[in-house]
Design a protein around this nucleic acid. Structure first.
Lengths: 214, 214, 214, 214
DNA sequence: GATGAATGAGTCTTCATTCAT
DNA sequence: TATGAATGAAGACTCATTCAT
């Protein structure tokens, strides 16, 4: 006769449906692109009726913010993990970051691809605030490199770290998320080589070695 | 009453229709994404009937290879120009390449974006052979850097050049084509800084300076 | 622990719910047509759940008879008022009736329009018995004119009075309820002129002047 | 090998479809109200596909103007007929008009009901210009009565004729189009009596007999 | 009883593709 | 051969009604 289980159950029912729908969308996204997924498909996969879908969400697009939000949590956790596992030297830190980020992208390729492409197809439906939050996380990753300021040989260490992170991410997006397409495909570098070389490139860039320029 | 002129005329007419349709598609692509363009729209813009469209092309997707082909010609010309304008030192060569490629992408952002996204949305409709041709062009760009072998301080100069080019392209795709989106947006590097820094990074990477690593 | 108060309370509560729903429907009808009002809208406005609605009423249409009934009470009161305020001469009586009826329609245009249109859109859901009751009220209005039998110059005074009332009502429906639509709109008669002229017409018709007929 | 038949055929095909759809709507309207008719119903009845419907008309509502237009032509013809068949005396003229108009409404009750109700349900979709045209036709009918100015005993003959016509139309709308509903139902006047009495009323009103008032 | 979540039939609408002319 | 009318499958969305809690 306790209230809690009942309330819990009530909350859960509603929430369960929403979760089922989000999960169904995630599943569908592994096979096809958002645009090609119909509401009927999602609801069928979720085991609910279309009406139920429209009771929760205004339309298919309304699901995306939740996807972004869920992803944000995942991303935050990952960054936290990186922040807890710092390395003693810059070079080690860079190597570790490249390795872990590669793995992170590989393991979440489906969701990453979706969000990456959606952002490009529907820039308007992304709430600006969310984007800013990503910016915060990029900063935090950059800050991890900044833990080794004396090893960074650069006019502006901050800029260098930001740039290194940005280059790394751009590189991994193409190499990991779209490895079977141009430009990744056109480039004869294997994934393993890519990991090694991008590490090397970041290290070269960040450390003293830029004396050569002028 | 000679056959030739008539056939000629027919071929020409046929060709004209095809060109008109391709042009119409290109025009439409400036305003909306391929997916959202209907056959009716294309034919209306081209001034031909839908029936005529289906006489020439199996479906809308069948237009894309032609678009890729046209782009291939453009790309080839650009690479040729790069091949003709080589620099004396590796560092100069890198700086020149970064500058020109940035400009090339900026000037053709529309078509680049379309092809880049289409490739990601419809990987299946890209004929493999076309991709290989791209691969050839990537190779040629890489080869330009290889003109300075003694300046490249690397186990495998070829790998290093390929990698440098691939990183450059990935970087420019995000920074130039999607500058208002994550990750470009989340990164605080300006476009000018990006040009400068990516040059620096490639130079650091390619030249001797990797002594620091170990 | 007496039953009465509880039952009373229950009945009251039940009745309250019903009243709330009827009131909600009335409110909605001021803004949109019955057809376009959803059960969800009504219940939301009434502050009850849809389930509760369906416990009370078979469906949305089942609300209408209650609306008609409420209106019947209003109408009855108005007729009673007319019956209490009779005039000495037929002409005066007609003028008074026209004036008051015009005002009555103007003041209740919303509900009149609704019932008038609903009756036309859903003739089947009007319980016949209710209609007969209207018939009774029409008769009572007609009877008011019949209070001046000697002034009515007609083969059948009853027929003449019934006819006069019917013509008056038809005229006011179009002129008052739908004054911005055809036929009212197409007719260049102003509302004031209409009041005056319909009075005149009824008087002409009812009084001696039908000598012309044969 | 004449062009005409072919062109004719082409024009006809397109036109035929449109006519079929309009006819189908008309047929459906005999059984149910516009609002309750689905596009699928109309196209099925017309023997064409839904796609064909949407090629001609933006949506269901887009059919209405055509219905109005067709009706306008019919109405115009009827008015012309009335204009050609004038009577020698006002009384005869009134009687003739009442008789013919009653018949006209009876024969076109379906379409009249539809237009009358639609105007009330969707006042916004009626192009104002069309309404004005009706106004012209009302004027023409009124003008027929005005052919007997010396028989009309009224301050303003024009006003009297307009009023008479408006009252007649209002009366017939309720009595003919909605004879089984309030107020027509509530009034004990038969249709035959109504014809006779409305004639009488108009005659009384228009002719000298208004001396009695004061 | 009351609640409101879930259902699913029904409607509108689009658009790729076919086919009569 | 070119045209554009016709087709119909497919998808989005609504809402009256039911039913588990």
């Amino acid at each position: 006769m306790h209230n809690d289980p009942i309330i819990q159950a009530k909350q859960t029912r509603s929430q369960q449906t929403q979760d089922k729908l989000l999960q169904a969308l995630s599943d569908c996204l592994k096979e096809q692109f958002f645009e090609h997924i119909s509401v009927a498909q999602i609801t069928e996969r979720a085991g609910v009726s279309v009406g139920t879908f429209y009771r929760r969400f205004k339309n298919k697009e309304a699901l995306l913010p939740f996807l972004y939000q869920n992803f944000g949590i995942k991303l935050d956790k990952w960054v936290q993990k990186m922040e807890r596992n710092t390395k003693d030297s810059l070079n080690e830190q860079v190597a570790y970051l490249v390795e872990k980020m590669t793995k992170f992208l590989q393991e979440n390729a489906g969701i990453f691809r979706t969000l990456h492409l959606n952002a490009r197809l529907y820039p308007e439906i992304l709430p600006t605030s969310k984007l800013n939050e990503r910016s915060a996380e990029y900063n935090r990753i950059s800050a991890i490199l900044m833990l080794h300021p004396d090893e960074i040989n650069h006019q502006c260490a901050k800029t260098a770290c930001d740039m290194a992170i940005f280059v790394l991410i751009s590189n991994l997006i193409e190499k990991i998320l779209y490895r079977e397409l141009t430009p990744a495909l056109a480039s004869p570098i294997s994934i393993n080589d890519n990991t090694e070389q991008i590490t090397l490139m970041m290290q070269s860039y960040l450390t003293a070695n830029n004396l050569g320029k002028k």
